[in-house]
Computed example of a mutant assay.
Amino acid sequence: MKQWNRRKATVLILVISILFLVTVAAAGSQCSDAARATDFSRKNLLPCLEYPFGTDWMGRDMFARTLKGLSLSILIGVLAAAISAVIALVLGICAATLGRRADGVITWVIDLIMGIPHMLLLILISVAAGRGLKGVIIGVAFTHWTSLARLIRAEVMQLKESPYVKIAGKLGKGKWYVAYRHILPHLLPQFAVGLVLMFPHAILHEASITFLGFGLTSEQPAIGIILSESMKYLVLGKWWLALFPGLALVVTVIMFYLLGENLRRLIDPNSAHE
Rank of each mutant, 00 (worst) to 15 (best):
F63N: 08
S17T: 02
A35H: 05
S71M: 12
I76K: 08
P47Q: 05
S71W: 07
F20D: 01
C48P: 03
I13M: 13
A82D: 02
V78M: 01
P52S: 07
V78E: 00
L21D: 01
N44F: 12
F63C: 10
D56Q: 12
A37E: 15
I16C: 14
E50Y: 06
L75R: 12
M62A: 08
V90S: 07
R60E: 09
T97F: 06
E50R: 08
E50H: 11
A64H: 04
E50A: 11
R42M: 12
K8M: 15
V90D: 06
D56K: 07
A96P: 03
A85V: 04
W57E: 15
L14T: 09
T23W: 00
I87L: 13
T38Y: 06
S41I: 07
R101H: 09
S32T: 12
K8Y: 10
D33A: 10
I76L: 09
L49K: 12
W57L: 11
G54C: 08
T97P: 06
G99V: 12
I93F: 07
V90W: 06
D39G: 10
L89W: 09
I83C: 14
L45P: 05
D39K: 10
S17I: 00
T23Y: 01
L70F: 00
R100W: 07
A102Q: 10
G77T: 01
D56L: 09
R60L: 06
A37T: 13
G77F: 01
A85H: 01
S84P: 03
T23E: 00
S17D: 04
I13Q: 13
A95C: 05
C94V: 12
F20W: 11
A96N: 02
V86N: 09
G99D: 12
V15I: 15
M62T: 09
L75Y: 08
C48D: 15
F40L: 15
T10S: 15
L98Y: 13
L14E: 08
C31V: 08
I16G: 00
L98H: 12
L70W: 01
G77N: 02
L98F: 14
F40N: 08
I16L: 15
C94F: 14
S41R: 15
S71N: 07
G92Q: 02
P52N: 09
R36L: 15
A102H: 05
T38K: 13
K8G: 11
A95Y: 03
A35G: 11
I18P: 00
G99I: 11
P47K: 08
V22Y: 00
G77K: 00
R65W: 06
L19A: 12
R101F: 13
M58G: 14
R101I: 12
F20H: 03
K8C: 13
S17E: 02
Q30W: 14
V15D: 04
A37F: 13
L12R: 11
G92T: 03
L79R: 04
S17G: 06
L75T: 10
D61R: 05
F53M: 11
G59S: 08
G28H: 08
G59W: 02
G77P: 03
A95N: 04
